[in-house]
Design a binder for these strands. Structure first.
Length: 599
RNA sequence: GGGGCUGUAGUUCAGCACGGUUAGAACGCCGGCCUGUCACGCCGGAGGUCGCGGGUUCAAGUCCCGUCAGCCCCGCCA
């Protein structure tokens, strides 16, 4: 190995063009590939900016040429040489530097490398275990470099936009207080206070509200959040939120700023112009038309409620469902499915909780083909055709059950069917807002109402009078932002009056004592002229993932955890020493030592 | 907590339904040759606890049970 000495890098590996011909340059980087012909040796030298072909010839410098024979993949090297045009017909159009090469007269091997455990230069899918264990190698791959660089650009664009709009970036604590409600907290034991714990924040929610009370007016932060829950392709125990809050605003003000932000970011990173304004659906409409509160608007296939058509039906399955307060909904798909496909779809519906999946094929001249159509009256058939206006060759699917089941099954089916028949356009970004969420949700397990968004979400002003009488009917001032069927963020106008906050706590069965203990600081702060305020939080990783069309959030995070929440690179979580545990009062030794000291 | 898929050479995979020679391929690696390649080429070579444990069997990579790990999903994630 050689020392770097006084060499200075003059150019990156993606930089040199024919305009540099004849210049002496010094490049530093990693050996991507070597092509050793015995005589002439070619090295593809890689750094984060690109690839440059370096040539070693015995005629240029025999010693250097000899040295170059030792080069292997991922050796870290420095090369001094001259830029020259490649011989006629030897240009490589696949790389931007393909017209030139560097004839090397000096080589310094800065570090050798073991043979990489997996290939870095190919598009081969490598098992994620290996990629995560050797993340430093994985991150050398163009895909990962691209993702993290893009992520940086999204963050920069957001920062620049929010700065222009008068938002101030303020950091909030990671060591904070555990909150009831919501996700499981990650806890940090306190050394100075035996038996007491900090919690890592699930979000900076309360701090940003306090900042509004403090008069900062507009705050934002790109901030890590922690939730000790099970993982998914789009969920990590620590993830990043683009978090913001504004004072003296209504829903519309927040939503406007966010639309502008999203459009600005898309334009300045992907170069995509999004249509404004984003469509706004109420929670009720979303459930009605799409069966879910996060509809994918890249395609149609809207659900249609058919209960009305079948109020008098002789078809027992439908009649019984309606009698029990159930619902009949259908979806019409412009595709003729095979018997096997219909069977598969039926078993999918069963897995999702439906008792069955009825279907009707629509033939030329509105002739219907189905095992159940014989049970339908003329009127009912007419009603169906009117509801769907199906083209010939379409298939109509029905689910009849309790509303929750019907919506869940058809929502899933809608997406599966759209995928199946290729209705989902690639590289399209369809945003929408979902508003007017219920404030509360009944929690069967706990036997009480829980906040659908969070306990600080303001009820709609016009629903305040029924807060106590009909809590389930109260709507909140919350809004979710949905992209292509994925919730990318949400927010709300917050409660800024202590009296209303106390009423909501009461509904959530958070007693005055508990409220004071857990959120006393907020309740007290609300008593000092808290302004009306509201805000929003983006799932930043998720947004970047969707923008890049990646399948997992781990593809846009430098050092992600596995599904079992382990870090394969560092080996976290890991055991700690008895001393550490004792110091943190997690082992009884502390008490012993203390009494020993006294003696 | 539950369901599913996967686990064979450094890597990506085949072999497993229907148990039976010495477990294969490609890439990578090592050695040799090679002065215009760019996924360089040619010749030769090394490399395996078939995730782990148990069982069935004359015989298990292959069948059965358990277990571990990775991934996907449900529950959970205000």
């Amino acid at each position: 190995m050689d020392l770097l000495g006084d060499w200075k890098r003059t150019h990156h590996c993606g930089e040199l063009r024919t305009t540099h011909l004849g210049q002496e340059v010094t490049l530093m980087g990693w050996v991507l590939r070597r092509r050793d012909h015995g005589g002439v040796i070619f090295i593809d030298l890689r750094d984060r900016e690109g690839i440059t072909q370096v040539v070693f010839e015995p005629e240029i410098n025999p010693q250097t040429h000899q040295h170059a024979h030792r080069l292997r993949a991922e050796y870290c090297i420095a090369v001094k040489g001259r830029v020259r045009r490649r011989p006629e017909g030897m240009e490589n159009p696949k790389i931007p530097t393909g017209e030139i090469e560097v004839e090397a007269y000096e080589l310094r091997i800065l570090n050798t490398s073991k043979t990489p455990p997996f290939p870095l230069d190919e598009e081969i899918e490598v098992a994620e275990v290996h990629r995560l264990k050797y993340r430093y190698l994985d991150l050398r791959r163009p895909k990962m470099l691209e993702a993290l660089r893009f992520r940086h650009r999204v963050a920069q664009a957001a920062r620049s936009f929010l700065d222009q709009k008068g938002f101030i970036e303020i950091e909030t604590p990671f060591l904070t207080k555990s909150t009831p409600e919501g996700a499981r907290d990650y806890l940090v034991p306190s050394r100075l206070y035996p038996g007491k714990f900090y919690a890592l924040p699930q979000s900076p929610q309360l701090f940003k509200q306090i900042l509004m009370i403090a008069g900062f007016d507009r705050y934002y932060q790109i901030v890590r959040c922690f939730r000790d829950e099970d993982l998914r392709a789009d969920r990590q125990p620590e993830f990043t939120q683009l978090d913001l809050e504004m004072s003296f605003v209504t829903e519309k003000d927040v939503m406007d700023v966010l639309e502008e932000l999203v459009c600005y970011v898309f334009k300045n990173t992907l170069g995509v112009e999004l249509e404004r304004p984003f469509p706004v659906l109420t929670y009720q409409e979303a459930l009605e038309k799409y069966g879910t509160d996060r509809p994918d608007l890249r395609f149609g296939l809207e659900l249609v409620t058919l209960s009305e058509i079948f109020t008098q039906t002789k078809f027992r399955v439908f009649a019984e469902v309606l009698q029990k307060g159930g619902l009949i909904k259908g979806i019409c798909v412009p595709h003729d499915f095979s018997r096997k496909e219909l069977d598969d779809l039926t078993s999918l519906a069963n897995e999702l909780g439906a008792k069955g999946l009825a279907w009707i094929k629509v033939r030329e001249g509105n002739e219907l083909q189905s095992p159940i159509v014989k049970f339908f009256s003329e009127e009912e058939i007419k009603g169906l055709l009117e509801a769907f206006k199906p083209e010939a060759g379409s298939t109509i699917f029905f689910v009849a059950d309790q509303p929750g089941v019907v919506n869940e099954v058809l929502a899933e089916l809608r997406v599966v069917l759209a995928e199946k028949i290729g209705l989902i356009p690639e590289k399209e970004f369809k945003f929408c807002w979902v508003v007017d969420f219920p404030l509360l949700e009944w929690d069967e397990e706990e036997g009480r109402y829980v906040a659908m968004h969070h306990p600080f979400t303001s009820p709609k002003e016009e629903d305040l009078p029924i807060l106590e009488e009909a809590p389930e009917k109260v709507r909140s001032r919350a809004y979710d932002l949905v992209l292509n069927g994925v919730e990318v963020g949400g927010g709300s106008i917050r409660i800024h009056r202590p009296d209303i906050q106390e009423r909501v706590f009461r509904l959530l069965k958070i007693g005055p004592e508990e409220a004071r203990e857990k959120f006393g600081f907020l309740l007290e702060a609300l008593e000092y002229g808290a302004p009306p305020h509201g805000g929003f939080a983006f799932g930043f990783d998720r947004l970047v993932m969707l923008m890049l069309g990646r399948r997992s959030i781990r593809e846009v995070i430098a050092f992600p955890k596995t599904q079992r929440a382990q870090c394969l690179l560092t080996g976290a979580p890991a055991p700690v020493t008895m001393t550490q545990l004792t110091e943190l009062h997690l082992l009884p030794g502390w008490e012993l030592k203390k009494s020993e000291k006294k003696q």
